[in-house]
């Protein structure tokens, strides 16, 4: 009796493999489960069994029935192309059906653009360095020639960190407002000559809208050597921008004020959207992109260098803005949204 059920199952399996059209299914089902079907008859024979054997065999019969039903289901779904996920065809083969749907992971657009910029800067002999986001006032302000009473501290709305007796600090702590905070750290560590960029996250305590966020990314650059001039600064800035934008970018320099450089500049680039004619994005054809300037002698002194011997330039790339510009992203908040409908585009 046991064997009988197993045999039936094996037979069904075999026959299902050979089956072709859906009509045959019904025949097959009838053959086993119909009123005079093999399986039905076998069940009927159960009553002839000895009392004590009945439950055991009965359970077996039930299991086999379930298994056979499953076999039928599987076979049916193979016959039906819509449900046929494995695309194992019973008749012919259609190579033009869609390929299997697969998902690839995505890097954040800032990561993608940063990698590009890092490659450009490496190729020009600039190191890439990293530093703390929770910074001391000393490195974020003081060492950058921004003393306590300086109005420039208010140009930036700073997040200050609360300290107390269980979390004691003599130094006031801030979330860094600028990657420039790494200038003096870098000079202390590497001395001169030196060429480096420091990309990273910065914070400003301000209300957010489509073009302002309390969290954004900057890339600070620093070059220190002997006899570095404004003419050198412009040359390097132009090379960097041409590499990043992969075309000749027209730039202009104008006065800008940052306490840690002297002279200080704003470097504008010709608007990439209107080509410099003036449009709703740029206004007058120019986009403010890179503040820069010759390193202030005070900053060199803070880093332990003699300004008579060494000088250099520093620049900042509004990195978030650059990414938005390159991709045409119109809302800065998307970058920190974690929205996969956004991330999956990159």
């Amino acid at each position: 009796m046991e064997n009988l059920f197993k045999q039936i199952k094996e037979k069904v399996e075999k026959e299902l493999k050979e089956i072709n059209i859906s009509d045959d299914f019904e025949k097959l089902e009838k053959k086993y489960f119909g009123r005079k079907g093999e399986f039905t008859l076998a069940i009927k024979n159960l009553k002839d069994l000895a009392e004590e054997k009945r439950p055991v065999i009965g359970k077996l019969a039930n299991d086999v029935k379930k298994e056979i039903e499953e076999l039928f289901e599987n076979a049916k779904s193979k016959l039906n192309p819509v449900a046929n996920k494995a695309k194992e065809f019973l008749f012919g083969f259609d190579p033009t059906l869609q390929g299997d749907k697969k998902e690839l992971g995505h890097l954040h657009p800032c990561t993608i653009v940063l990698n590009d910029v890092v490659d450009v800067m490496n190729s020009m002999g600039f190191m890439v360095l990293d530093g703390p986001e929770l910074e001391s006032e000393y490195y974020n302000f003081e060492s950058l020639n921004i003393p306590k009473t300086h109005p420039a501290r208010e140009m930036q709305d700073t997040y200050f960190i609360k300290t107390d007796k269980n979390f004691k600090y003599k130094e006031k702590l801030v979330l860094r407002t600028q990657t420039s905070a790494l200038q003096v750290r870098t000079i202390e560590q590497f001395g001169a000559p030196l060429r480096a960029i420091f990309p990273g996250r910065c914070f400003r305590n301000e209300a957010t809208d489509a073009s302002h966020d309390n969290t954004f990314y900057q890339i600070e650059g620093l070059m220190i050597d002997r006899n570095i001039s404004i003419a050198n600064l412009v040359s390097i800035m132009n090379s960097i921008l041409n590499q990043i934008f992969k075309r000749d970018v027209k730039t202009r320099l104008r006065p800008g004020y940052f306490p840690f450089v002297e002279p200080g500049f704003e470097l504008d680039i010709n608007c990439l959207i209107c080509g410099g004619k003036g449009c709703s994005v740029c206004g007058d054809g120019w986009l403010e992109l890179m503040p820069c300037g010759l390193v202030h002698p005070k900053v060199l002194e803070y880093g332990g260098l003699d300004p008579k011997e060494w000088n250099g330039f520093a620049f900042g790339i509004g990195f978030t803005r650059l990414v938005m510009m390159l991709y045409g992203i119109n809302d800065i908040r998307l970058l920190q949204s974690g929205d996969l409908r956004f991330i999956k585009q990159f």
Binding site: G105, H106, I343, K344
Partner: peptide, 14 residues
Amino acid sequence: AKNLNYCEVYNYSM
């Protein structure tokens, strides 16, 4: 991202 097929996000520190 490319071998394990994860999507990268940046979130606020606050």
